[in-house]
């Protein structure tokens, strides 16, 4: 009985080893994952920066409009942007950006993906930031203005630092979503992490190990990201005792 179990395990293990070697070692197939990870990170980080820039810009316009009633035209443009981006799937946006707008111009696929995901993420970041700005008591704003700060100075010195602290968890969440959303980059011929796993599956006809490996890599990155953000949160919290 015991012997049978050990034999069974032995057999399973050697099969596993064979599959593992076939999936990742033979022909350096692990490189599909490694290079794919590189592409995924490039797209994510690029889109992250673009999304934050766009998001803060749009949020600044929207909350200025909410507070002062100025910037009517810009606000209308921002609202159209938010409606369109949030109302259509990111895969469709990616394909439109690639096939309709940028591919005819011969732009590099990674740049296309960064633009598409960045513009998409910007819409969500914008609403997060706007909510953060509106959550700060108006007295803070009045205190800044009464000292003689102009509107941008008040925003930059007083409102945004406080808003940023409040929205950090929501922003972190948006970054996690962004990282995982880039897994559809394969639609525009990009070999990202997910596509890398898929290519291995196509070569070896083994779906299990490559896909589990891909899932684990995403999971680890998300866990590292979460850890970093919670460290940042703790540092920012030193003013509330």
């Amino acid at each position: 009985m015991n012997l049978a179990m050990i034999n069974g395990f032995d057999e399973w293990f050697s099969k596993f080893k064979e599959r593992f070697i076939n999936d990742f070692i033979t022909d350096n197939r692990w490189k599909y994952l490694w290079n794919g990870l590189g592409v995924t990170m490039k797209i994510t980080l690029g889109a992250l920066v673009l999304g934050i820039l766009l998001g803060f810009l749009v949020a600044a316009v929207r909350s200025t409009h909410d507070k002062t009633g100025k910037l009517k035209i810009l606000n209308a443009i921002c609202r159209v942007y938010l409606t369109v981006i949030r109302g259509t799937p990111v895969v469709v946006q990616l394909m439109i950006t690639y096939f309709v707008i940028l591919a005819p111009l011969g732009v590099n696929e990674i740049i296309v993906a960064i633009c598409a995901f960045g513009i998409n993420s910007g819409a969500y970041v914008a609403e997060i930031v706007r909510a953060g700005i509106m959550s700060i008591d108006n007295g803070q704003f009045e205190a800044g203005r009464s000292l003689g700060f102009n509107y941008p100075q008040t925003m930059y010195l007083i409102i945004l630092p406080q808003a940023f602290k409040n929205i950090l968890p929501a922003l972190c969440n948006e970054f996690i979503v962004l990282l995982k959303e880039t897994s559809v980059a394969g639609y525009v011929a990009l070999q990202d992490l997910t596509k890398g796993g898929d290519i291995i599956r196509g070569r070896t006809f083994d779906a299990f190990l490559p896909l589990i490996a891909v899932a684990l890599i995403y999971l680890v990155i998300v866990m590292i990201l979460t850890k970093l953000v919670s460290m940042l949160e703790r540092r920012l919290r030193n003013s509330d005792h």
Binding site: Q140, E142, A143, G144, S146, G148, Q162
Partner: peptide, 15 residues
């Protein structure tokens, strides 16, 4: 406004 100091009911210090 730089020449007019203002003190509010709810202090409005920058936390």
């Amino acid at each position: 406004r730089q020449k007019m100091g203002m003190v509010f009911q709810h202090f409005n210090l920058f936390p």
